[in-house]
Design a protein around this nucleic acid. Sequence first.
DNA 1: AACAAGATCAACCGCTTAGGC
DNA 2: CGCCTAAGCGGTTGATCTTGT
Length: 340
Amino acid sequence: MGRAPCCDKANVKRGPWSPEEDSKLKDYIEKHGTGGNWIALPQKAGLKRCGKSCRLRWLNYLRPNIKHGEFSDEEDRIICSLYANIGSRWSIIATQLPGRTDNDIKNYWNTKLKRKLMGLLPASHQRIAPFQQSSPQNLSSFPSHSHSSSLSSSIYSDYYNHNSNHYYMPAPTSSFTCLEPISVPSSNYTNTTTASTLNPFYQNQEPLASIISPMQYYPIKDSSMLVFGSETSCSSSDGSCSQVSLGREVKQEDMGFQNFMFGDHQNMNNINHDGGEEYVDQWTQKPNGHIFQTQQTAMDYDLEVIRNLISSNSNSSNSNNEYLSVDENKTEEKGVYYNY
DNA sequence: AACAAGATCAACCGCTTAGGC
DNA sequence: CGCCTAAGCGGTTGATCTTGT
């Protein structure tokens, strides 16, 4: 048999939470924790709410260290970079932004950041799908518009600030630097500690550079294995502060299309040269024991990709499928599976 | 000042996944 | 192994706030 039903929807309060309810929930959780059972919690806490609602309220609002207010340029960068790589996996993105919830990030993306990225158009035109207006040439001229918004200028500041401490791969034609401005030391990485230490922003966090786009870093001389460490910051998704590591505990679905590099040599990535175009063979071990090889071009993602994602998402109710379709254009699965 | 339109974001909905039975 | 439910997650909604006319 299964478990008891979630809640009787007819007898639960809905809508905005009152300060009294917030107080009750917060007090209860601070004293007793969630007990691993959200369904039973509201009754114990004296709340006439669905457990699901309590969970959401706690995770998105009442939980300690929740950060509200303006997103920084750095956060903007992280969000758009991750979005380019993993799509709308808000909970995963949230793990890289301590204090931010997936809901927050999702709202921010949908209401502000997306528009910033598309902000090359006047505000009065931004509701029109840009891809139906812009030629590829226009898109590729993005950097020349980079001072049109704070986001753009911050993003491109690194693009223009070429120096030996930055590894980035400006795409030959289009140059989306959301993907690029994470500073990376010039030495080859072999472990998380190195990346984290040399990137102050990522101290105590994942070395995001490796998540954003591993592909962007491989041209560094020879094989530059980027390895995820463990994540100790709270995930917005479950509030349990469990270890969330994109490299180690990422869900199966997150691994299939994202060419994350993993520690423990679970991945064996080789750089190849094929007719002048670099690509990477990636060997990704899935949780089910399969080893999954993908191939990806060196150019990886750029602004156009993000814009296409935005565009295709707005044209479809199934954003996941849309995202994957874009990804599939970039990634050629060889369809080789190895069972352990 | 009043109204409309747009922007924001908390909350809900519904689907997927994991795990108990 | 299949059924069932809780938890988790992303998409969507709608109330409220802000801005423009």
